[in-house]
């Protein structure tokens, strides 16, 4: 109950604070430069130069403090020793290059980067195409989209019920092992099966992201001008040809957006690995490795930050691409 009031009062204070700031600062501005009287025109011009910054102020403050400053601070820390007391140059980075776990993480992250966006987009495309053509398509879409709302941890629990292993001869309570034994195979401990366990973790993320890809791609497919499709059909193209040669090329831009968005998610993947294998059995990824260095045992902020910076460097190309696209659109 105490908690409840704390939350309510925070919302109240937060909302009230924001409103007070925006309203109050605007009023002060209008008092200093009143938009009437002898200098009205001049005043309005001056006020309009200041006002945007009043509107933007809190957002800029938050963005700087919570996103820009940390990147700079991490960069600084990555060049220092474990506690940040001594400058060590690029030692942390050279150490990373030689570290077995880091190489494993890089290799796994690259695997994730190849597999997850590709499969999610592919399944998303198939799902979009299929559900757009049937009567119960909207229900189908909802159900495929549903995993989006489920936390990575929740998904971990859900998939634990699929990958669970029981010794041979016992009743398998994991769906996958049950099917395998039914087909005459031996039950496997999927999550310790190097190197395939990586793929079993990836499937969880594909399961979550496919819905996202489907929603976006389905909208893009519906946006394709009818004439191009009709023309192709009149020319005798089969449904598969229409799909592959007419529809897909026209939504290439959207596919790229979906692909990059999922790529970003994949680069940051943490929770799934954290709760399902915790990076054991050759499944380590960068985000979890960084967590290990920062919060387990005796923390090493230098090395942890170096890994964070590597992550940052990996997302930079996509960041640049996104900014260029956004600017093109503004123009």
């Amino acid at each position: 109950m105490e908690l409840f009031w704390l939350a309510i009062s925070t919302i109240a204070i937060g909302v009230f604070g924001c409103v007070a700031w925006f309203w109050g600062s605007n009023m002060v501005l209008d008092t200093i430069y009143p938009p009437k009287g002898p200098n009205a025109g001049d005043n309005i011009r001056k006020a309009n130069q200041i006002r945007p910054w009043l509107f933007l102020g809190p957002a800029i403050l938050f963005l700087t403090m919570y996103l820009v400053y940390p990147v700079i601070d991490s960069l600084w820390r990555s060049l220092h020793n474990s506690t940040g007391s001594r400058f060590v140059g690029v030692d942390n980075y050279t150490w990373l290059l030689g570290d077995g776990k880091f190489r494993e993480s890089m290799r796994n992250n690259m695997l994730w980067l190849l597999v997850v966006p590709a499969l999610s987009t592919l399944f998303g495309l198939i799902a979009a195409q299929l559900t757009d053509r049937i009567r119960w398509g909207n229900i189908g879409k909802s159900l495929i989209f549903m995993p989006m709302a489920i936390s990575f941890v929740g998904a971990g629990v859900i998939w634990k019920f699929i990958y669970e292993f029981r010794a041979e001869g016992e009743t398998q309570i994991g769906l996958l092992n049950w099917i395998v034994t039914r087909l005459g195979g031996d039950p496997q401990i999927w999550l310790t099966l190097i190197p395939w366990n990586n793929f079993f973790l990836m499937i969880v993320l594909v399961w979550i992201q496919t819905g996202f890809a489907m929603v976006i791609l389905s909208a893009a497919l519906r946006g394709i001008p009818e004439e191009t499709i009709e023309a192709a059909i009149l020319d005798g193209a089969s449904p598969l040809q229409v799909f592959m040669k007419i529809k897909v090329p026209q939504i290439m831009g959207t596919i790229a957006v979906v692909w990059t968005t999922i790529t970003i998610v994949v680069l940051k993947v943490f929770d799934i690995v954290f709760v399902m294998t915790n990076g054991q059995w050759g499944t380590q990824v960068l985000a979890n490795l960084m967590y290990d260095w920062m919060f387990r045992g005796s923390p090493d902020y230098g090395r942890g930050s170096a890994i964070a910076i590597v992550l940052m460097i990996l997302v930079t190309p996509i960041m640049v691409w996104n900014i260029r696209n956004a600017r093109k659109e503004v123009r």
Partner: peptide
């Protein structure tokens, strides 16, 4: 640009 900053970078700072 800030949309894609991995929040892992922010934790320690």
């Amino acid at each position: 640009g800030l949309l894609v900053v991995p929040l892992q970078v922010s934790l320690i700072p």
